Simulated assay, not measured.
Amino acid sequence: MLEIATGSGLALSAGLNAWIPLIFLGVLSRFTDLVELPGTWAWLENGWVMAILVVLLVLEFAADKIPVLDSINDVVQTVIRPTAGGIAFGAGSMSETATVTDPAAFVQSGQWIPIVAGVVLALGTHAAKAGGRVVANTISGGTAAPVVSAAEDATSIGVSFLAVLAPLAIIPVLILFVVGVILLIRSLAKHRRARAAGHGGEDAYYV
């Protein structure tokens, strides 16, 4: 149960920032006793891997705070964040799923489930983030991008800490996540209907 909560929290974190939970796992595993990665995920604590992840983190940290560029970054991250979520869930839940030598046995064993769960959670978080960013940029003319991005980074760090140090605290976070996604979907749907109605009114006027 705790392992699942940890993996879920790290996957949610990856949906906001792909690199934070991966760096978090690598650093804690290499320098503390809080996390002990299984052999198949031990590459996360490799010095070169962590250095590359830090560079990628810095690049995304900058790109995500610049209007227009942040939207382009979100498009690129549509593949990266879910992938990171699958890795984070698998490593965080201590699942031996990184090496697949027999695909049929892998499917039958159910070892793919943590990775898929992480991908789904991260993808949902990423979609909510990207959709929310569009709304925030539209309302503020792009000026909200740095503030919103900083809040997302802080949330990603906080959720990663909770996932490892207080896994049970992730349960209400998951509930809030589901509620937030539902509210965001409704908000986006309402916004689209309003825009469609506005365009319809203009067309009717000119006709």
Rank of each mutant, 00 (worst) to 15 (best):
T83I: 09
D33F: 06
T155P: 12
S156F: 05
G201S: 15
S8H: 00
L59V: 07
I52P: 11
L121P: 00
A88N: 01
A63T: 11
R192E: 04
S140Q: 06
L34K: 12
T99Y: 13
N137L: 05
G15W: 00
P114C: 04
G201F: 12
M50P: 04
V134N: 14
L121I: 00
L184H: 09
S156P: 09
V116A: 14
L174I: 00
A63K: 10
A11T: 00
E60K: 08
V120D: 03
G85F: 00
A88Q: 03
G118I: 01
A62D: 11
A197M: 09
A151T: 12
T99I: 11
A154F: 12
E96Y: 05
R81W: 03
H126W: 08
G15N: 01
N73F: 14
L22H: 01
L123E: 04
I87E: 04
A196Q: 13
V120H: 03
L44F: 02
R192S: 09
N17L: 07
D203E: 15
R81D: 02
V173F: 02
T138S: 14
I115G: 13
G158P: 03
A11N: 00
G201L: 13
Y205A: 15
G90D: 03
V75A: 11
G118K: 02
R133D: 15
T143K: 15
R186S: 08
V27F: 08
V179G: 08
H191T: 14
L165A: 12
L69A: 10
R133C: 08
A105I: 05
G141N: 07
V181K: 04
V173I: 13
P67Y: 09
G131P: 10
L165Q: 09
